[in-house]
Amino acid sequence: MATATIDSPDTHDDHDEHHATSTGISNTKLAMWTFLGSECLLFGGLISTYLLYKTRRGPGPDNTAIPTDIFDIPFTSVSSFVLLMSSLTMVLALSALTRGDNAATRAWLLSTAMLGSVFIGGQVYEFTGFIREGVGFTHNPASSAFFTLTGFHGVHVSLGILMLMSLYVASKQGKLTPKHTETVEIVGLYWHFVDVVWIFIFTVIYLIPVD
């Protein structure tokens, strides 16, 4: 392998955004992607558990209703759509920040958080509806697995909302400037990841019919 040239940070001739790293890419962003790779295994485990258990109703006459019996697909479609669109607003927030348009950045950040909140609200509504109809967390393996999977995802979305709101506050205080695009980008990566996980869940858990 060819001998590498030494990046000499002392020269500062190109004011790169990043410090010299071996690969030239940002530590933080690499860490985020690495972490997301790991998250695939986490959600994979929960999704597989649900798939395995989705028709396990448990014995006896009680507690045998399972989530697939009472899915409200039109409702979930709307909330899935909302979450999907929040990815758009997220990427627009980043784009606005790159342009230096702070007002637009805040607006998009806020709308992303709002859309996320609507999604969470929908999930809370769905959960309470399920429980009202006798599909509670403790009733049978199918419902335990369903609530654990979607609840886990919901917690991820909620954390994302917290991050977005923190960015919003930082922006309000004037601390979010174009040089912070990577920060927003990284929050965005997390947010989009949560979105793609839902794309998967929506199809595999909700839409694919159970025989």
């Binding site: 004011h15 790169d16 410090h19 954390l159 991050m163 990577e182 920060t183």
Partner: peptide, 20 residues
């Protein structure tokens, strides 16, 4: 400002990490 500016830790996104 171009140097290490994005690292000055003023960022709330550290919340992210902790949350994760």
């Amino acid at each position: 400002d171009d140097d290490g500016g994005d690292d000055d830790a003023a960022e709330p996104e550290a919340v992210t990490s902790g949350a994760e």
